[in-house]
Design a protein around this nucleic acid. Structure first.
Lengths: 337, 337
DNA sequence: CTGAAAGCGCTTACAG
DNA sequence: CTGAAAGCGCTTACAG
């Protein structure tokens, strides 16, 4: 194994100079820096991680806690894990994955053994024991999501309430007076997931403000449930003319298939907005307007805040990322009755 | 921070005794072991990870490389990551997650910096650059999956060929002469995923051996594709009386829905086997026989082999886990014509 | 059965 | 701008 001593010898300098040349923590003559770099390349030197951790009190590892509950497959979770790992790498950080059974125990363990410099908490519940733990842990931590009690926490998330309002406003502005939000499976709301109720409640509250007739329905994973739900809506006395999806890709494509089968024109007879999807909706038939959930941005910001905490200190806060509206032509003015 | 010196002082022993008491690497008087353990508990001591790595030349971390390609959502991947993490913890190991862009670069990096003791490779392609890298890396590594060239590698996987044969045999033994395998999206086969072709080819080869009329079709993710595909099959001159699914949950439920809509009795008129699902099929209507893919077992064995490699040496090998058949009543004898 | 000590490979004050 | 040296907190021969 090649060590810093080998590099120092080849470059003809001391090991401290090698260390500083690599870290940039003190100024180095251009020529010696180049010699060090050449030696590093020649020997293919890579600092020993354990030694670096021990001497430098920095591990360059984040713990990422994502329960990955066996029952909830949501691919969106994978997207957040991926985005967090990618963002971490831009700061030379790796991610250690902590799952369900290691949720709190694992966090305590990796924190007190100084295995990680910080914690990123994913899939935050409204009441989440990891939030309480993190509050007590005195280690840089960022939650991606907003629990009910945010005291003392640093949280980053898409502003799901703004998403709900934006979707409602878009439809209402186009003249729609009867709208429906088709959401996630009921279990997601029951389990205490933080963002689906935020979106739902803001949607309904805005509708009430504007005097719009709005309804909400949870939709299960089986395609049959979306079909049944949508069929019931279409067959009602006053069917909605605007629909907002806050469900997964399969549900949305199933709904579009049913609408096509029944000859309901989108947006002619039914305007649709896809709220907070992690997937593209421009390939749907027809393409759907969407207010995207952007894991890369949210996770990037979360990692940035964690890095800032490691460097200095960051005030507790809830940072909500404002949503943006992508028009793909699936909302049209309500035709005159 | 509490260190081993604190524990030693409180327990009234030397730090080496503390270390040995904790690792069990030399025999300790029962009474001193108890005093050490009491001190550890009292101080809530946890060995410093960096120091442990440096002095012990063991990091207790596995690198898990799972590309998590943004385009392939397959929830099964999440199940394997989860199962690997869980299995690792049973040996006191944590997992560092390496994704797509860090596939080979990341593996080299964490290996040469001695950040990890071993590598678990997930989502193996038939020709996988990670396999070549791992071969050259001289670090304990296990592939979950079987690339085309397995020379010098330790691989563990479900025996997908046996799965294909088992499914065919079950249907053929029940008298079915025309059978169809409905597989994954075409892109999965094109991308070079290792197991779908293995299952498919063994299925077709066994059918040829036994003189069964067998066909294969890739099925895309959109429910409409499964519907169209299945409708075409049902409307054919000689429709299959036996079907094997090697596709995701949504596709399978969609297919069952269509069969119900068209009044095709399962297993009365159509026998079905679900091949290599990670999800339960007993809740389907009707419940389906399955030959399950068991990530917990496969990943458990992979981790075990990695641990064995760390402890000593393990010969290169391909370990194929024999499949088991779960009968839920979805295969019936072919009714007399 | 136990202890004193060397050493793992770095980082970072401390000097010059 | 650079070097010699202390020290990070463990593990593990080496002694007894």
């Amino acid at each position: 194994m090649t060590t810093i001593h080998d590099v120092a010898r080849v470059a003809g300098v001391s090991i401290s100079t090698v260390s500083y040349a690599l870290s940039g923590k003190r100024s180095i003559t251009e020529s010696t820096r180049r010699r060090v770099e050449a030696a590093v390349r020649e020997l293919d030197y890579r600092p020993n991680a354990g030694a670096r951790m021990l001497a430098g009190r920095r591990t360059y590892i984040f713990a990422v806690t994502e329960p990955l509950r066996a029952d909830t497959y949501e691919p969106a979770h994978m997207a957040f894990v991926l985005a967090t790992a990618t963002a971490a790498r831009t700061y030379d950080y790796d991610v250690l994955l902590l799952t369900q059974d290691e949720a709190t125990g694992g966090l305590s363990r990796v924190t007190s053994s100084r295995l990680v410099d910080g914690i990123i908490v994913l899939d935050v519940l409204r009441e989440d024991e990891r939030a309480d733990l993190v509050r007590s842990l005195d280690i840089p931590s960022v939650l991606i999501g907003v629990p009910d009690d945010t005291a003392g926490l640093v949280c980053v998330d898409l502003d799901f309430e703004a998403v709900g309002r934006m979707a409602l406003d878009r439809l209402a502005d186009a003249g729609h007076r009867t709208v429906t939000l088709l959401g996630q499976p009921q279990a997601v709301y029951d389990r205490g997931s933080n963002f689906p109720p935020r979106l739902r409640d803001a949607f309904l509250a805005r509708a009430a403000e504007r005097g719009i007739d709005a309804a909400f329905h949870a939709v299960e994973r089986e395609p049959s449930d979306m079909r049944a739900r949508l069929a019931t809506l279409l067959d009602a006395d006053t069917p909605p003319t605007g629909v907002v999806f806050h469900c997964e890709e399969q549900q949305q494509t199933t709904a579009l298939e049913l609408l096509a089968e029944r000859g309901v024109a989108v947006p002619g007879e039914m305007s649709i907005v896809s709220a907070a999807p992690t997937f593209p909706t421009s390939g749907f038939r027809p393409p759907l307007d969407r207010i995207p959930l952007v894991p890369a941005y949210t996770c990037g910001r979360a990692v940035e805040l964690a890095i800032n905490q490691i460097a200095g200190s960051v005030e507790p806060r809830v940072e909500l990322v404002p949503p943006t509206y992508e028009d793909h032509g699936s909302v049209a003015p309500l035709p005159a009755a």
